[in-house]
Design a protein around this nucleic acid. Sequence first.
DNA 1: CCACCCTCTCGAACGTTGGTCGAGAACCCG
DNA 2: CGGGTTCTCGACCAACGTTCGAGAGGGTGG
Lengths: 219, 219
Amino acid sequence: MDATGYQGGVWLRPARGRRDAPLTVDRIVVAAVALLDAEGPARLTMRRLAERLDVAPPTLYWHVKTKDDVLDLAVDAIFAEVRVPDGGEWADAVRALVLAWRATMLRHPWSPPLLGRPTLGPNVLRRTEFLQATLAGAGFRGVDLAAATHGLANFAIGSALTQSTWRNAAVRDAANAHVRANADAYPTLAANDHLDDPDWDALFSQGLDRFLTGLAGSL
Amino acid sequence: MDATGYQGGVWLRPARGRRDAPLTVDRIVVAAVALLDAEGPARLTMRRLAERLDVAPPTLYWHVKTKDDVLDLAVDAIFAEVRVPDGGEWADAVRALVLAWRATMLRHPWSPPLLGRPTLGPNVLRRTEFLQATLAGAGFRGVDLAAATHGLANFAIGSALTQSTWRNAAVRDAANAHVRANADAYPTLAANDHLDDPDWDALFSQGLDRFLTGLAGSL
DNA sequence: CCACCCTCTCGAACGTTGGTCGAGAACCCG
DNA sequence: CGGGTTCTCGACCAACGTTCGAGAGGGTGG
């Protein structure tokens, strides 16, 4: 007998064991990305993920070692969206890659903070390889090559990280109200509407151009 | 009677109520920063924090609303370390501020990922105000001003975020081994020792100079 | 056709976490 | 000395990541 209520007996209990569509790591990662996109990182729990896959929570642990593994896989998965340019002038190729890279992060705003963990997935590495190879083809060597590669990546990551925060209108409004209320302490920020819904894409594009110009000049 | 063991009775039980050194938000934040520095963000729990302050866990919640509040306060607290330059050429002042900003983040490697949440503390705002005011004084206006301010901040944040990951020797060695093992897929990365303990400070400094040069040229 | 093994799934449970509630101790003021 | 405010804590809660061992299902060799 069951003290917690009638469960339906053998007749209504769902079948155990194998399913028609077997669970795979890929299906887990796809579901995780969907969940992160829809509800944000705080709501991604192994239980909710299992629920979404119509599976009991412990089942996930046969395919995946820890929750962190799921996060790492999810981060790499989204970078498959970044189109790798082919051919063209080196500056144009770099520009296109960095813009696409940033756009993908903004499409999945939970991703930038996760770049604080090592990212060694095939999608990330392939695009990093392309970036460095393109710069090397343009003539960069040694420290200059490393500085250019890291600089471009860091610029995009930093931009995506801050923008994904301030893009939220409620957050932005509260911030602007606070700055304006303390206009005596922050006169320049208040006068220039520092955060007042700027055209983030244009700002990034402009900054990227400056960076690329600086790089080209140092060749 | 107590089934879990003798607790000491009234005689040995520690005194309740007020303490000599009363708990304050400041003391909580200082302890949180110390804990984060010493053991990393994963080990920062309200219980450990309370233990470090010699206080019962629920007590913290009278001074602070949530754990996220503690994190936000901790982030702002460390930026008090960033010295605000006074006087001098605008480019030198900006350079000094951005370098100090990045150095502080690297001294507290748990901080860059937390910048994914709104940062509106007085220390952060004051330094952002200084940066923007200095650039405005140099002649930047409108979109150019916004692009310069955000670009510099984003560059520093991105650099700190990625570097705080790859600075760990074990992580870096594993990453390099993996890249070299797949040298056919990542020939350029493998050939250039992409992550092989470069001089991160020099790389950042060089990138910052390029950026500042580009900015100066656009005035 | 059966016995076996490997692959995959899950019920039950553990220890820990962030957070709430209400009782009460200590202090301040009248 | 009495009453209200400020501060502290014991007991407790739901939810989390994760483990363990029991099994169900299909494939293979005898």
